[in-house]
Amino acid sequence: MITVTDLTKRFGQTLAVDRLSFQVESGEVVGFLGPNGAGKSTTIRVLAGYHPATRGSASVAGFDVAKQSLQVRQSIGYLPENVPIYPELRVVEYLRYRAALKGVPARDRKVAVMRAMAKAGIEDVRRKLVGHVSRGYRQRVGLADALVSNPKVLILDEPTSGLDPNQRRRIKEVVRELAEEHTILFSSHILAEVQDVASRILVIHRGTLRADGAPDELVRSSVGRRLVVAAACDEAAMRQLLAGLPIEGVELVEGTNGLTRASAGLTEGADPRAEIGERAVAAGIALQELKLDAPSLEEYFQLMTEGADRAAENEALVGDSETAGAA
């Protein structure tokens, strides 16, 4: 439903999006996650037809965003990060205007507006001036606007930004309900927002894609997983127990109650728990604890963004010192 291929967007000298590629299949709810300034809004604006790409291509519902912009805009419902709405119009008037602008036939317009208001939960403010409703309601009016033409694809840019916890919960509920009928791409810099509603997450940082997968899958495949073992034995026996396993950086702590705890990093995809169990039985060691300690999605996100920055900085430092050494 959404295909982005080698998308690059520059604003003068600033590289906002760098050769970004991803796909969103029909019916998926995909969270577009990244810290502020990662390139989320720029990518979304290219998909919505507001900015042209500098290089690369993107298509929505089978239409090329550059060559068939009008058809793309007919296929999407777009909620920008800050919902700017004409304050002098009543909520229902604004939605009728937007429905007409989006080509909803006059005979269907009333029903379309009512349906969009019901989905966004704003029927109680329908007669209020847009300038007089709270920020949370304004965000939902924007959501109703995105829904009013019943588009196949919804693109929501930070839909919960600036809302209080209750308003955020309400928006997430609405997105979950919409997931039954629409393909949804929604961005956020708050991981919990995405984790709650998305079946898949794209992590973007400094304009490039850092991770793509289901939230659990991303954590499971994370290099940050650690093995934790606690057994009734001394340190030497524990070392024997763990010898030759696909682990690294073993840390041992001998407790006063005859227990020794070990913690070690795992190589990617490894799970030596069964083997440790067998070895413990063979050696007659009583295991008290044996688990894989996966990082939370929050930690994973930190690893993908801040960790990547640190690695890049270290590489740059090494490069500098090598250059200085050669000189």
């Binding site: 037809g49 507001y50 777009y78 700017p84 937007r98």
Partner: peptide, 13 residues
């Protein structure tokens, strides 16, 4: 006010 973005992303020439 930023409403230009809403206008320009609507399916209208």
């Amino acid at each position: 006010t930023g409403s230009m973005e809403m206008l320009m992303t609507a399916p209208v020439k």
